[in-house]
Simulated scan of single mutants.
Amino acid sequence: MTNAYAYACRDCEGMEACPASVVAESKEEVWKLMELHARVAHDEDPADWDQATRDYLGTLIKPVTV
């Protein structure tokens, strides 16, 4: 079994209807995928996220075993 990290967009407040989720080997890779998803699916610019938003999103990245 390998350790990895996961993020599900539906766990984010206000995004409960979004079915997207990602799993990657590192938190850094999950962050990149989250940012890409935000741009493509939600027309958000991650550069506009303040530190409080980034801190909140960071709590939604969970360790998983795959």
Rank of each mutant, 00 (worst) to 15 (best):
R54I: 05
K32P: 01
V30I: 12
P19G: 13
H42L: 04
L57I: 00
M34C: 13
L33A: 14
V23M: 05
V30P: 12
W49H: 12
A47H: 00
M15H: 11
R39L: 07
E16R: 06
K27I: 15
C18K: 04
R39D: 05
V23I: 12
A20H: 07
A41Y: 05
E29D: 14
W31N: 12
R54L: 15
K32V: 10
D43Q: 13
M34Y: 03
L33I: 14
L36T: 13
A38E: 02
D45Y: 02
H42R: 01
Q51K: 10
D43W: 07
D45R: 10
C12Y: 07
E28H: 07
M15E: 11
S26D: 15
T53C: 09
D11H: 12
R54Q: 12
C18T: 03
V23R: 05
D50Y: 00
A41H: 09
H42D: 06
E13Q: 15
A24D: 08
R10A: 12
L36G: 13
D48N: 11
C12A: 12
Y56S: 01
A24E: 06
A41W: 05
A41N: 11
R54M: 08
S21W: 03
D11Y: 02
E35G: 02
W31Q: 15
V40D: 14
T53G: 07
V23K: 06
T53K: 09
E44V: 02
P19S: 08
Q51T: 07
E29I: 09
R54P: 04
A52P: 14
C12W: 12
H42S: 02
V23N: 03
G14T: 05
L36N: 12
V30F: 04
E16H: 06
D11E: 15
M15S: 15
D48R: 08
D43S: 13
